[in-house]
């Protein structure tokens, strides 16, 4: 899905000059982008604009040919089920549910993956043994990996990862990057990762400085 960004600026803070704010550019299908910035420059705000959680900006964001400002709540609900997936910086797992329940909560919306596939993905990130542990008992790094698997349990054309590997060691980052790349290719999707500086050895189409 092609995303066209036209001259957007947040209304609730004044960002420094960057390659994202107040610029016109496109994010293309089958491509990988890195949004690189120091904290506080508005990475999460940009993701929230793209995910429809925040509309306090001027300018336009266009998915294919439709401006997202025109989407109704139901449009957003179906987009979030079928087209656009996210790993929030704050992960947003439900602490009282187990890792697997958290993932299934997302997966049951579309039944995108079987339980075996989910467990295989967890195994790839070395957290399969934690599948039946409550999310609140997991370390932040383990929770990050569960949240990544959850984000992959739906069909998507856009995958937004907001500092997804911040608490994961190098080996697991490699595993996670492989898993994510594989899914992105399968879905022919646009991958957008936000990071403070690390590039995670991914071959990006473009790196945008924010």
């Amino acid at each position: 899905m092609q995303i066209t960004i036209q001259n957007i600026t947040p209304n609730f803070f004044t960002p420094a000059s960057s390659e994202v704010w107040s610029k016109n550019f496109e994010l293309l299908p089958n491509s990988k982008y890195l949004i690189k910035a120091v904290s506080g420059s508005g990475k999460s705000s940009f993701f929230n604009f793209l995910y429809g959680l925040n509309n306090r900006y001027s300018g336009s964001i266009i998915f294919e040919k439709t401006t997202i400002a025109s989407f109704s709540e139901n449009d957003w609900t179906s987009l979030r089920r079928e087209k656009i997936s996210i790993v929030f910086q704050g992960l947003r797992l439900f602490p009282e549910l187990t890792a697997l329940e958290n993932i299934q909560l997302k997966n049951t919306l579309t039944n995108h993956k079987s339980e075996t596939e989910i467990l295989a993905m967890l195994a790839q990130l070395d957290v399969d043994q934690l599948a039946h542990k409550k999310a609140e008992t997991l370390s932040y790094g383990q929770q990050q990996r569960v949240a990544i698997v959850r984000a992959l349990c739906q069909p998507f054309k856009i995958l937004l990862l907001d500092e997804p590997f911040s608490h994961i060691d190098q080996t697991q980052i490699t595993n996670a990057v492989n898993l994510v790349s594989q899914e992105v290719e399968q879905n022919k999707a646009t991958l957008i990762i936000a990071s403070l500086g690390d590039t995670y050895n991914i071959n990006y189409t473009k790196i945008l400085l924010l």
Binding site: S45, N48, F88, G90
Partner: peptide, 13 residues
């Protein structure tokens, strides 16, 4: 509760 901009998540930036 679910109106845009009122969510808990918009506090992240």
């Amino acid at each position: 509760m679910l109106r845009p901009n009122t969510s808990l998540l918009t506090t992240e930036n």
